[in-house]
Design a binder for these strands. Structure first.
Length: 293
DNA sequence: AAGCGAACCTGGCTGC
DNA sequence: TGCAGCCAGGTTCGCT
């Protein structure tokens, strides 16, 4: 699934096709994804102008002229495809008409500029919801959400505060969206390796001795920021079903140091260890037990 | 209360 | 070739 860098790449791909444009038609091919679509979904969208697109953690938000916000989550396999039309496109034209589509094309947005934006999601773990713009941050999706890892708040001191007394492994704590929101399985593995921290270490130990652990917590904050920033610059990571909105592939996956590299030699220069795969809370963790402590 | 494991759903890959 | 089994980027629910 798309983690923060993939969602940000999608946001940037959708922006030129949707920002400032009216939604002239919305095709809804099924009544639910992971959750039911909100009541009168199509009617509440059609005719509205998209005043902007933003991202919060792994969620995309379309801001609408109706003072509602369309919250979208891509789940594990959600993907948007943009086909740019032109201003003369109208029903019956290629860019408007529903042509031979995948059975997993669930939603199609037709924009006034002729662009057609298709949401495809084979596993249907994604969802869409409409909430009043004024109460966006108080919506059920965002209410309990933690800090944005690329925002200004994330630093070693905050990590120490968030992890105080936590008995969960570092891996689980970093995946907890109520603490830091936007990290997923891949980038947590990568950030921990770059930080030289074991995914099995209890999160509370990073703040257990504040003086001694301050440097480690600071390093972790920095590597989280670095790995996410580099991934966004690379257009995200393309595994199985993820691609950018124009169909091209992100290339950060070539820069993975540990994710998916079970059995390979640890890439840390001075380290003679090998990458192992273990399972933590039901998810694969890739790490090097020699240099991650 | 916090921390696990299971569940949600489909498709792709591996190995017999 | 066919099929069973395992795995996948996330989140939520329910049970200790």
């Amino acid at each position: 699934m798309p983690e923060l860098p993939e969602v940000e790449t999608v946001r940037r791909g959708l922006e030129p096709a949707m920002a400032g444009q009216r939604l002239i038609a919305v095709e809804q091919r099924r009544k639910d994804l992971r959750f039911p679509f909100p009541a009168r979904f199509k009617e509440r969208l059609e005719g509205q102008r998209v005043t902007g697109l933003s991202r919060r953690a792994k969620y995309l938000v379309l801001h609408l002229s109706s003072e509602e916000a369309l919250i979208m989550h891509l789940g594990m396999s959600g993907r948007f495809t943009v086909e740019m039309g032109d201003k003369t496109s109208k029903p019956g034209d290629f860019h408007y008409e529903t042509t031979g589509t995948s059975p997993h094309d669930h939603i199609v947005f037709h924009m006034e500029n002729g662009a057609r934006i298709t949401y495809n999601d084979p596993r249907r773990f994604g969802f869409m919801d409409l909430v009043p713009s004024a109460s966006l941050s108080e919506s059920k999706h965002f209410k309990a959400m933690g800090i944005e890892p690329l925002g200004n708040e994330l630093d070693g001191e905050l990590i120490q505060t968030l992890f105080t007394d936590k008995k969960a492994p570092l891996k689980a704590a970093l995946l907890d969206q109520r603490l830091i929101a936007g990290l997923g399985n891949i980038y947590v593995c990568e950030a921990l390796h770059r930080s030289g921290l074991s995914p099995k270490r209890l999160a509370g130990t990073l703040s257990g001795n504040r003086g001694l652990m301050k440097g480690k917590a600071e390093l972790l904050a920095t590597t989280i920021r670095d790995v996410l920033t580099e991934a966004v610059q690379a257009g995200g990571s393309s595994l199985r079903d993820y691609a950018q909105t124009d169909g091209s592939l992100g290339y950060f996956q070539h820069r993975f140091k540990v994710y998916g590299r079970e059995g390979e030699k640890c890439p840390t220069g001075s380290c003679s260890g090998a990458i192992e795969r273990i399972v933590q809370s039901g998810r694969s963790t890739f790490y090097c037990r020699t240099c991650q402590k």
